[in-house]
């Protein structure tokens, strides 16, 4: 069984295995297909039309499935690898070991935002940005420049305390847990982290930065935390909602998986620290 660990706890060997697997997916072209898929949904998901990957209830199960597919691709390269998560409430500065040269590399240089160290720097020749919205082929970051502060633990707690999963109109203007976690409303958790990292992470082609997977692995863990704390709450809407993926509707692009299939992460992986249920009978 796959165990997803906090990135801060990885050994040097685990970091090396993870980054090597990423570089191998990049070399084969597999990596870029994930970037393309993500940007297609970013541009296609709209508040007033069909929406699956973002700004909708299926934001969470869609990304859970997307990460599972990516993790499976990594494990075909190296079966020992699993997706680490980045708890940005704790590791919240550009001096975190996450951004060291032996892991993801640091922020971009002032002149053009180019990441100059680590395994994903352009100069290595191994991580060109191919799926892009502009002409620049180098990985860029501007840690802490687009927004000064990452979300705090208290802000996360306030969102985890929201008992209703999602609410009509099921989009970026919704009240409820999903939209506050996604960040279009309220304290702004997920969206703000993308902006804090900057560079490609702030764009529709955000999976070009490997930190995308660790950010979303933590968002995914927060969904599991929310489930544990709100055992009587479940995915909404249940059925019959136009333009929106109901509990038992299939999700594009896979068309064979529903939000209901994604509710229990323990079918696929566990976390190094599993959320503790608030009551004995979770779901």
């Amino acid at each position: 069984m796959t165990v997803r660990k906090n990135q801060a706890a990885l050994t040097a060997e685990e970091k090396r295995a993870f980054t090597n697997a990423l570089l191998e997916l990049k070399r084969t072209g597999s990596y870029d297909r994930f970037v393309t898929t993500h940007n297609g949904f970013i541009m296609g998901d709209t508040d007033s039309g069909d929406r699956v990957g973002h700004r909708s209830p299926s934001f969470l199960p869609w990304h859970r499935r997307f990460l599972l597919e990516f993790e499976a691709a990594l494990q075909k390269v190296d079966p020992k690898v699993s997706l680490p998560y980045w708890d940005w409430t704790v590791d919240r500065t550009s001096r975190s070991s996450l951004w060291a040269a032996d892991f993801l590399g640091g922020t971009g240089r002032a002149r053009d935002g180019q990441v100059m160290d680590g395994p994903f720097a352009y100069a290595t020749g191994k991580f060109n940005v191919n799926v892009r919205v502009d002409g620049r082929a180098y990985l860029r970051r501007a840690l802490g420049e687009g927004v000064a502060e990452l979300p705090t633990k208290a802000e996360v707690e306030s969102v985890l305390a929201m008992p209703v999963y999602d609410m009509a109109p099921w989009n970026s203007s919704s009240n409820g847990f999903r939209n506050h976690l996604e960040g279009w409303r309220g304290a702004n958790l997920h969206n703000r982290v993308h902006v804090w990292v900057g560079g490609q992470m702030a764009t529709g082609v955000s999976p070009n930065d490997p930190v995308f997977w660790m950010h979303h692995a933590y968002i995914d863990k927060l969904w599991a935390e929310w489930q544990a704390r709100n055992p009587k709450s479940t995915y909404l809407p249940a059925a019959g909602t136009a333009n929106v993926v109901d509990l038992h509707d299939t999700m594009r692009p896979w068309n064979d998986v529903t939000p209901a299939d994604m509710l229990d992460h323990r079918k696929f992986y566990t976390f190094d620290t599993e959320p503790v249920p608030a009551a004995a009978s979770q779901r």
Partner: peptide, 11 residues
């Protein structure tokens, strides 16, 4: 800016 439908787009 790059044209819509980034390089290698299938979606």
């Amino acid at each position: 800016l790059a044209p819509f439908g980034p390089t290698g787009s299938t979606s």
